Amino acid sequence: MAAQLLSALLIAIALLGGGYWWGHTATDNAWQAKQAKEDQAVSKAIDKETKRADQAAANYLREHIDQEDRYAELDSKYQTLRKRAPLVVAARAPRTPECGPAQAPGRVELPAAADAGDVPRLTLAAVRMWNGALTGVDSPAGACGAAGAAEGADAACAESAGLSLADAWFNQAVNAKSCAEDRQRYQHLIDFLNGK
């Protein structure tokens, strides 16, 4: 009887151990299957993001090279223009003729000192180059660089645009402020993305 009880107890322990082992194995298999699916989903997501990042990098590189080429072409064009047209001209206030005794023969009159109204003015060439540097596109300023004009016919480029250096400085300050704001926004975006 003791032997029967002992064998029944051993059978019960063996069944309990076998059930535990089978349940543990089934749980491990289910967990491994679930983990494999999750790993596969993560792998697909990483592959998708990698492709997206590669495409973004390729787009950036292509656009950057295009922009560098455009600016190099503009620089070449503008270096040639600078040789043919000044960037500033003196704008003089209209003068009234002075009445007085005639000049003695043989005497040379030196040019009069600049009027208080004389202010250097930007030429149309300077405005054309300024705008091209901002936009990366060569566009005419008034008659300077207008479509259909002959290559050598840019006398209009040496004409005053009516803008002073103070006007250019004001425009530069607005552009610099805008650039600083963009830098700040992009830095916050970079910080946000890096923290993600």
Rank of each mutant, 00 (worst) to 15 (best):
A90N: 09
V89S: 04
R92M: 08
D66K: 07
H64K: 15
R92K: 11
K77G: 09
I65R: 12
A58V: 06
P86M: 03
P94T: 05
R82N: 13
N59V: 11
P97S: 11
T80F: 05
G106Y: 04
Q55A: 15
L81F: 00
L87N: 14
L74W: 00
Q103D: 08
E98H: 09
P97A: 10
V89F: 03
T80Y: 05
A72L: 01
R62C: 05
Q103K: 05
I65L: 10
E68D: 09
C99S: 14
L81C: 07
Q79H: 02
E68W: 01
D75C: 03
D69W: 01
A56T: 10
V89K: 07
V88R: 09
D66T: 10
A93N: 07
A93W: 01
E68R: 10
R95A: 15
G106R: 02
Y71P: 00
D66A: 08
Q103M: 09
A53V: 08
L61H: 13
R62N: 12
G100A: 00
R52C: 06
R62F: 08
D75G: 06
G106T: 03
L74T: 00
H64D: 14
R84C: 06
Q103N: 09
A57M: 10
D69T: 05
A85S: 15
A93M: 04
P94L: 04
V88G: 01
A90C: 06
A53K: 14
P105R: 11
E98S: 13
A58W: 08
K83E: 13
R62M: 09
V89C: 03
G100R: 04
E98Q: 15
L81V: 04
A72W: 00
E68L: 10
P86A: 06
A57L: 14
A56V: 10
Q55K: 13
R95W: 02
L61T: 15
Y60C: 08
V88N: 01
A56H: 08
R95N: 11
A72S: 05
R70N: 03
C99Y: 08
T96W: 07
H64R: 14
P97W: 07
A85N: 14
L81Q: 07
R95T: 13
T96C: 04
Q55F: 07
V88E: 13
R84M: 09
Y60F: 15
R62Q: 14
K83N: 12
P105N: 06
I65C: 02
A56Y: 06
P86I: 02
G106C: 02
Y78G: 06
Q79L: 05
A53W: 12
A56Q: 13
A104F: 05
Y71H: 00
T96F: 06
S76C: 05
D69L: 02
Q103Y: 02
Y78D: 15
R92H: 13
G106A: 02
K77S: 14
K83M: 08
Q67L: 09
T80H: 11
L81I: 01
Q79G: 04
P101N: 12
Q55P: 04
D66C: 02
N59R: 11
R62K: 15
